[in-house]
Design a protein around this nucleic acid. Structure first.
Length: 573
RNA sequence: CGGGCUGUGGCGCAGCUUGGUAGCGCGCGACGUUUGGGACGUCGAGGUCGUCGGUUCAAGUCCGACCAGCCCGACCA
């Protein structure tokens, strides 16, 4: 491609609404433009990167035996009702009507359709299968943001493993886990696999692939000395032993105006240290009010509550008016003692505790000497608290740290939910019928692009890894209006094309500074500078984008030099 | 869905308080001088000021409604 005739609209001024670095650089570099909230046009540079990322994914999926298909994005609403996910996905699902008034939805993931296809399987001898596709997914996000990091329309590679039994599922899951590691390594991002909540997908186990970045929206917990890694939604920590040394019987005491854990602790330090208080929260799970008990110095992790409750359509904190109606008191004086008409969820850190303080469900009154066993009817014990930095690792006892990251992939052990919903059963050796066991595995292609940029840039612009660069080499012609220089550059351009290098010829009649700045903003890994001075003496310059290291090379040997460096870059794992 | 902010040439913005018919920088076209790190001069093109309605002799400016985008929160595979 010749730059002088390419549509590469670079900008000097950042778009005002670019919050993430990748958003700013991809717009400034002329890779993409926003059409509407969460909807982006990929320009020629962006599309070239996207196709390279997709190519890496495709190669690795094929390498583990994946079979690529292409599924429709327009789905009849019935299949989403059949799987039960029409209600589950709620407003995130795009819905529309056709001319006959029939309800349709736009696919946000494709378990339903692959489940339907799997119903054509009849024998264990046809298993295992790995099926995948890469196409557009639609999600009506409440708040698209950060450029490609959270959008309403994007490309996802989604694959599905189909097995007769759970060892088979484990094998398919592990194949994907290692394929994903290779994919992200080849893309040039350091993605780590962490334990995750399965969320609305259901299933038994899930692992996310996370790229560390402050632009990300996920909080990750890692141990400083062992390999424990988990999303905050799933992470847990070791509990320290607390001895409550018996204590008095339960009694009421007046706490006028004390409405927070801290205020109560400061007013009554002898009986109401935060770790001796029960924090009582009121939530609605699918419109059912429930009480949630956690230790006074802890915070609730809502996803854990949702997981403990089973897959729920909706979780929300109750409003103060609702709380007064349910319990007869305002937040600040709430407790679960004597509550029998509401389900009570309690965090493990409260199990077996006694001599605690909690609200009396009467404004300005609390109870002391409360025993969990004796005084509170707990329906569900679960790990509900949010881990905080410095907590104790549940595996090795070292310290846990928290950091932010971008979720670039997520793999799930689904089980039989969809095969049962769509009648995907196969017979085993004995002739008895079993639902196919499914796994589901996703990678967001454009989000992956953004993650690459987030972790590969400097103050001058993007630094694409060779494997995903829109072009591997840019030939920067100084004095494109000088015939000898232009001819030498054009010859070099054609020679590089001949040996299969992805090269762009910057033959614009621009000042050198403009061309250098653009090539660095766009982030092409190798630059060859061809100028009149060098052409006269038979040399050109090679500059690496990373580090901007420049070396002088004879014009006759530059093609082989470049080719070997490009090949090294392409192969990097 | 709650709270906040913003919509003015392609991009970034001023003008609005105090109403009088639109301006700056970058970019763009032509010509000339330049050309190894984002040049300079001259001339020029380009805007129903988000939309609709209202007030007024007169609205980018005041009022109302709506739409869109962004931020915080809620939410989120």
């Amino acid at each position: 491609m010749r730059w002088s005739h390419a549509f590469i609209p670079t900008l000097r001024d950042a778009p005002a609404d670019a919050d993430a670095v990748s958003h700013k650089l991809l717009v400034q570099g002329g890779f993409m433009r926003q059409l509407s909230a969460g909807s982006y046009t990929m320009l020629t540079l962006g599309q070239r990167v996207r196709l390279k990322v997709a190519g890496i994914i495709r190669e690795e999926m094929n390498a583990i035996g994946g079979q690529e298909m292409m599924l429709p994005t327009l789905h009849p609403v019935e299949i989403w009702k059949q799987s039960g996910r029409f209600d589950l996905m709620g407003e995130n699902l795009f819905k529309l009507k056709d001319r006959k008034g029939a309800d349709l939805v736009l696919g946000m993931t494709e378990e339903e359709i692959f489940g339907i296809l799997a119903s054509e399987l009849f024998s264990y001898r046809q298993l295992p299968q790995i099926w995948y596709q890469m196409n557009t997914k639609f999600r009506d996000e409440p708040r698209p943001k950060s450029g490609l990091l959270r959008v309403r329309e994007f490309t996802m590679k989604d694959s599905y493993s189909l097995d007769i039994d759970s060892p088979g599922l484990d094998a398919g899951f592990d194949k994907h886990r290692s394929a994903y590691k290779r994919i992200f390594a080849r893309m040039g991002v350091a993605a780590v696999d962490v334990q995750a909540s399965s969320g609305a997908m259901g299933g038994t186990e899930s692992v996310e692939f996370i790229v560390r970045s402050n632009a990300g929206e996920d909080w990750i917990v890692t141990c400083e000395s062992c390999d424990y890694r988990a999303n905050l939604e799933k992470a847990t920590s070791a509990l320290s032993d607390v001895t409550d040394d018996g204590g008095p019987d339960m009694s009421r005491y007046a706490t006028p105006g004390l409405r927070t854990i801290r205020a109560l602790a400061e007013a009554h330090p002898e009986i109401a240290r935060p770790d001796r208080q029960i924090k009582t929260l009121v939530y609605y799970l699918d419109n059912e009010p429930v009480l949630v008990l956690i230790r006074g110095d802890h915070d609730l992790q809502e996803q854990k509550l949702l997981d403990a409750a089973g897959v729920g359509e909706e979780i929300r904190a109750a409003q103060p008016e609702e709380i007064v109606e349910l319990l007869g008191a305002h937040p600040g004086s709430l407790g679960a003692v004597g509550v029998i008409d509401l389900r009570v969820f309690a965090d493990e850190s409260l199990r077996g505790r006694s001599n605690l303080t909690t609200g009396a469900n009467e404004d300005d009154w609390h109870l002391q000497g409360v025993s969990m066993e004796r005084d509170i009817n707990v329906n569900v014990w679960a790990d509900l608290r949010a881990v905080v930095s410095g907590d104790v690792c549940p595996i090795c006892g070292s310290s846990l740290e928290l950091w932010k990251g971008i979720e670039v992939g997520h793999i799930f052990k689904l089980g039989t939910k969809y095969s049962e919903a769509f009648g995907a059963y196969v017979q085993d050796e004995e002739g008895s019928s079993h639902p196919v066991i499914m796994g589901s595995y996703g990678i967001g292609v454009e989000r992956g692009m953004a993650a690459i940029v987030e972790s590969n840039h400097d103050e001058k612009g993007i630094i694409w890894p060779v494997s995903v660069a829109p072009f591997e080499v840019v030939i920067t012609v100084l004095r494109a209006d000088d015939e000898a220089t232009a001819n030498a550059a054009t010859k070099l351009y054609e020679d590089l094309l001949t040996v299969g290098v992805d090269v762009i010829l910057d033959d614009r009649v621009e000042r050198p500074g403009v061309k250098f700045a653009d090539s660095e903003l766009v982030g092409i890994p190798f630059r060859v500078t061809v100028g009149p001075r060098g052409v006269e003496s038979g040399v050109v310059e090679m500059t690496t984008r990373r580090g901007l290291v420049t070396t002088e090379v004879g014009i006759d040997s530059v093609v082989s030099h470049l080719l070997s460096q490009v090949e090294v870059g392409r192969a990097v794992l």
